[in-house]
Design a protein around this nucleic acid. Structure first.
Lengths: 123, 123
DNA sequence: CTGGATCCGGTGGGATACTG
DNA sequence: CAGTATCCCACCGGATCCAG
């Protein structure tokens, strides 16, 4: 359908969105609810989050599972097709870890205990 | 200086630009003049090309070599720091090649002789 | 003729408030 | 809690102009 000038554009079409790689890097570690993703990405807007998630879903990279309950619950996870991106995401993450300028050199900003994410006080 | 919520953002800060990965994928194969890059990326604007090249240069990923001659000649190439991105670019290109929907299955759309890029029939 | 800069109009993304 | 609607501005695209 699409004509690419160079094959890598096919990859960028899927993960080239502004926040998609970050989203996928979170989902590669574990299934996440919408609010969890929002907390993991303080810089992102609701609008952009849902938009990027929809596009990833349309491209078959992630799955959206809706629980019919109140309050609403939606979970996002990688599809098998999405897992084919693992090597890309791994190399991106590895490069970032090697070349990041750490503001708090002794503090791990990433691997917070997951349990604390849900009960984080909202004040 | 910058605070990242996840290390991979450090990588996206460098290669996250709209055309940067494509540019780097071309430069990883060989040094290129401005006009060559322009021809290899029919979709890009002169303005965006120079802008993305400037940003890549500021981030120390590519080098800009100016020949003082008429007509002007400028060559872009990867720096040693830029070569540290090779693994990322390779995995991106490999994924693209595997998952591209080939419009002309038996035709290699990439390694066309440069001269024919402008006159390619659109049927 | 190549490489680049500038000006202007349309679009994508941010902030906020609202609905179920 | 998840998602939508609205407004607004920075950014991108296209055309044009400039230097060598």
């Amino acid at each position: 359908m699409k004509k690419y000038n160079i094959p890598v554009e096919a990859a960028l079409e899927v993960i080239g969105g502004k926040w998609k790689v970050v989203i996928l890097c979170h989902l590669i570690k574990s299934t996440r609810r919408t609010g969890e993703l929002k907390r993991l990405m303080p810089g992102i807007t609701q609008k952009m989050l849902t938009q990027q998630l929809r596009e990833l879903e349309e491209d078959g990279v992630i799955m959206r599972k809706v629980y019919n309950q109140v309050p609403p619950k939606v979970e996002y996870s990688l599809t098998e097709y999405g897992w084919s991106l693992k090597e890309i995401l791994d190399s991106l993450c590895a490069w970032g870890e090697q070349h990041i300028e750490r503001v708090y050199p002794d503090k791990n900003e990433v691997l917070l205990p997951e349990a604390s994410l849900d009960e984080m006080p909202l004040h």
